[in-house]
Amino acid sequence: MKDNFNLIVAGYGGQGILTATEIIVGASLKEGNDVRETELHGLAQRGGSLDCHVRFGKKIFSPLVSRGEADLIIAFEAVEALRACYYANKETIVILNSKVFRSESKLKEIVAKIEKVAKKAYVIDADKIVRAETGAITGTNIFLLGYALGKGAIPLKKESILQSIKENIRPRFIDENMRLLEKGEKSD
């Protein structure tokens, strides 16, 4: 790993992005990193683009990832994945949920555009898998974390992530989320 790791978690409001970010922040703190994070919340409306920046490593100043400097982008929706590619470079891994929300764009074209600027896009229909597993899509965030972990894209120990999930998720949902993390990790 370089000195610092730069992660973008992207999607639109109401998708559980903040929780996913919180889990990664918790895990990276546990491993003794200097961590900075930024996201803009505090507004209630739905549907607007949302991206969270997490940076961890030896010493971090800027809370924002600079353009072209993300190591990993986890996106909960395809158009938002493309938007987040503002932060991508030829080494960036993009993990994306194949959902296209309120847009005429086609997934295939979006992925092609992403692969032009990033190293690799891993695309998965996370909503479908999570719905089949739990009956709803609220767990997509944890599933995608697991998926990224399975691809070796997060330089954190699984142990720290599990621990962080326990600290950030309401008790009655922990078991389900543990299952989703595993499921994501094992998915292709």
Binding site: G47, S49, R83, R102, K116
Partner: peptide, 16 residues
């Protein structure tokens, strides 16, 4: 020069 990426705007909406 950084690559240019064009992405459609996404507006917030009133909740369902």
């Amino acid at each position: 020069k950084p690559p240019q990426i064009e992405v459609e705007k996404r507006l917030s909406f009133l909740c369902p």
